[in-house]
Amino acid sequence: MQILIIEAALLLFLIFTTVCILCVKDILAAAIIYCAFSFCAVLLYFMMGSPDVAFTEAVIGVVSTIYFVVALKNMNRWCK
């Protein structure tokens, strides 16, 4: 029962972060919130019993966040 409550909370937070990514105006903030979304997905994969997929998602979340930040820096468009 406790597992179900934690899983439901994580799923709700996942939807919340997704809506936040769509609604936020700052591009850098969107990239960072995407990192939080990725971490939420990692915890959900762990609860479903697939540590391999969770590991991949964790590493790729970090690398893609680095890509986003470097691309934003090169675009000279930090906000607005």
Partner: peptide
């Protein structure tokens, strides 16, 4: 244990990218 080629490659690349940054 959990892991494999793809994860190891991404981790090593993250280390090298960190040192470059």
């Amino acid at each position: 244990s959990p892991g494999g080629g793809f994860q190891a490659g991404a981790l090593l690349a993250a280390g090298i990218v960190l040192s470059r940054l």
